[in-house]
Design a protein around this nucleic acid. Structure first.
Length: 257
DNA sequence: ATGTCGCGCTAAGCGCGA
């Protein structure tokens, strides 16, 4: 079973790219981030026609997350991260599909740092810690995936020294990610490829993709029950080179049944 | 500091977030 995550950066603006990628790579389950579309503007029919049933949590202009499945409709468990009723950003959606619990997330960017946006990022991380702990405590197979907006280590940045003050790489951010994984989560890509430079995002500036000036910020965190099932992982890097493409590439893992 | 995008507002560029 192939499970993918893809920050599309506008689900309607990227629809041709998204549909081509679905057609060419046929993942079984897909988590999308940055829909940038209100609830009623999600392209449900086009996704259905492509063979996927979906649940989503939209928002005008920004954020927005979805879970797509080739088989059964994802059974939605929640569409917000617990812990702050005042937080109206659509950044989390959780579902069960065939006995697997999947949390799809779009962690706040947090720039500029320091500042209120960075404070929000760290608070969001605190809430994720709390919820992730409860997911582990249930003892079931769980996958947390999406755009974490964190490069976990220096290996995950093309030029670490120029990113140390950025909200995606500051010590507080890396510490928050390390604290999360220390609960018992496995970073799937890094476990399979411990020493390789693997990027999932290249910004639109300065010809970043052509220079491979990338970041690894889209992740798969596996609960202990899933680790023995991990059979492969990769980045569909070619998609980043297509016309009208997102600044992220799709990322995927393969789980044995 | 800049660079490049999509989206919303509103009808063409601009502000915002990334």
């Amino acid at each position: 079973m192939k499970i993918a995550t893809y920050n599309v950066n506008g689900v309607n603006g990227r629809l041709p790219v998204l549909l081509r990628w679905l057609e060419e790579t046929a993942p079984d389950i897909v988590c999308l981030q940055e829909l940038k579309a209100p609830q009623e503007k999600f392209p449900e029919q086009a996704i259905l026609d492509a063979g996927y049933k979906a649940i989503w949590h939209g928002q005008k202009s920004w954020n927005g997350v979805a879970i797509l499945s080739r088989g059964e409709l994802p059974r939605e468990i929640r569409r917000t991260l617990p812990g702050d009723p005042e937080d109206v950003h659509s950044r989390y959606i959780e579902a069960e599909i065939g006995g697997l619990t999947i949390g799809g997330l779009y962690l706040p960017n947090g720039n500029p740092a320091p500042g209120p946006k960075f404070d929000y990022k760290l608070r969001w991380f605190d809430r994720l810690h709390a919820h992730a702990e409860s997911l582990l405590a249930a003892g079931k197979p769980v996958l947390l995936t999406g755009d974490f907006n964190v490069m976990p280590t220096e290996l995950d940045v093309y030029k670490p020294e120029s990113w140390v003050d950025d909200a995606l790489f500051r010590p507080e951010t890396r510490a928050a990610f390390a604290k999360l994984t220390a609960q018992g989560w496995t970073d799937a890509i890094r476990t399979l490829y411990p020493n390789e430079k693997i990027y999932t995002f290249w910004d639109y500036f300065r010809n970043a993709f052509a220079r491979n000036a990338g970041l690894r910020i889209d992740h798969f965190l596996l609960s202990p029950q899933l680790v023995p099932r991990l059979a492969g992982a990769g980045v569909d890097k070619q998609v980043r080179g297509w016309e009208k493409t997102s600044d992220h590439a799709p990322v995927w893992i393969e789980l044995k049944d």
